[in-house]
Computed example of a mutant assay.
Amino acid sequence: MTAPARAGEGLRAARVSRTAGGTLVLDGVSLTPRPGTVTGLLGPNGSGKSTLLRLLAGVLAPDTGVVTLDGRPLAGIGRRTVARRLATVEQHADTQVDLTVADIVRLGRVPHRRAWTPASSADEEAVRSALARTGLTDRAHRSWRTLSGGERQRVQIARALAQDPRELLLDEPTNHLDIQHQLDLLSLVASLRLTSVIALHDLNLAALYCDRLVVLKEGRVVASGEPADVLTEELIADVYGVRAAVTRPDPAGPPHIRFLGTLTSRAD
């Protein structure tokens, strides 16, 4: 008999491992995002960040360990049910069909509708709300193809919000965005107060916008906690092979990382 869902537990990964092509990509990773906070996933390329996000989303299944949603194994929950709770935003999104912004945001309502049924008034209200929350109301009828990279990422977040999720997973959403759009996008994610897990490369952005950090190296968790505790000069050297100076310009604020070069280069 399946145990009843425990509403307070949310999304969890317990000692998950995953092998791909004979290589161990994740090795016994556990993750328990705190409700309503932003958890940042850090680590160099190949450390397992994207694979962990795909396991959390149910796109991949762990070889060992388990991902649960409110205490129930994700593998035993229907995809439509999962999609009503959990939304994802990928690094890149494109379409071969000439859709408008509103059309794409409406895709977020698919898990809430029966097949071939028209959109309800509740669906349209969810779309309007998602457009408003992401500052896209005036772009609702614009073609996707005419949008900038930053605008496209906001549309993807609006689509995710239209799903009315409690958990939001984002895989390096700031890649290829200029500084202003990076800051705008992460400010938006932080303001949503959803349980968000976001893979990032920029350590300063992670320190600024994430409540907690989990650092991966070669598929294992090597550090987790608040940014000020995690982002040390020693950790950055060990995980990234880079010399850095870590300071706290504001004792109550996030740490700031200044990179000084690789461990094998001469000091500046």
Rank of each mutant, 00 (worst) to 15 (best):
P62T: 01
A228L: 07
L56K: 04
V101I: 08
E125L: 08
R258K: 03
V97F: 15
L31S: 04
T174N: 03
G135P: 14
A252F: 10
S121T: 11
R139E: 04
A14Y: 13
R220T: 06
A160Q: 03
R266F: 11
Q156M: 10
D229T: 01
R133A: 09
H256K: 03
P4H: 12
R85T: 01
V110I: 08
H181G: 07
R85E: 04
A140Q: 12
F259N: 01
D238T: 02
T264A: 10
A102V: 02
G71V: 05
V59R: 14
E90P: 14
R266D: 01
R106L: 11
G261F: 12
S17L: 07
N204E: 04
G65K: 11
G135C: 11
P44N: 09
L41Y: 12
T100E: 10
A244W: 12
L260I: 10
G261R: 09
A14W: 14
H176R: 06
K49F: 10
L194D: 01
E172R: 07
H256V: 00
S47Q: 00
V110Q: 10
V189C: 00
H176P: 02
K217M: 03
H112C: 05
G10I: 05
G8E: 15
A158Y: 11
L203R: 11
S265F: 12
N175D: 01
K49V: 03
V222P: 03
D94K: 12
Q180R: 14
P35G: 02
S47A: 02
L53Q: 02
P35N: 02
L52Q: 08
R154T: 09
D138P: 06
G28F: 14
D238V: 01
S143Y: 13
G58W: 15
V82M: 08
T37Q: 02
H112T: 00
D103E: 08
S224M: 07
S47P: 06
L107E: 02
G225C: 09
V242R: 15
L205D: 04
A158V: 03
L55D: 00
G46S: 15
H112P: 04
V110S: 11
A122S: 13
A13K: 07
R145G: 15
S50T: 08
L194A: 05
I236T: 01
L11Q: 01
A228S: 11
L53Y: 09
S120R: 08
G261M: 06
Q163N: 11
T39P: 02
G108H: 15
L177P: 14
Q96C: 06
L231K: 09
A206L: 09
R212G: 02
R248F: 10
R266A: 03
R258A: 04
E9N: 07
G10E: 02
G149Y: 12
A126I: 07
L52H: 13
V222K: 10
W116C: 01
A7W: 09
V155K: 08
T88K: 14
T232Y: 14
D202V: 08
D268C: 07
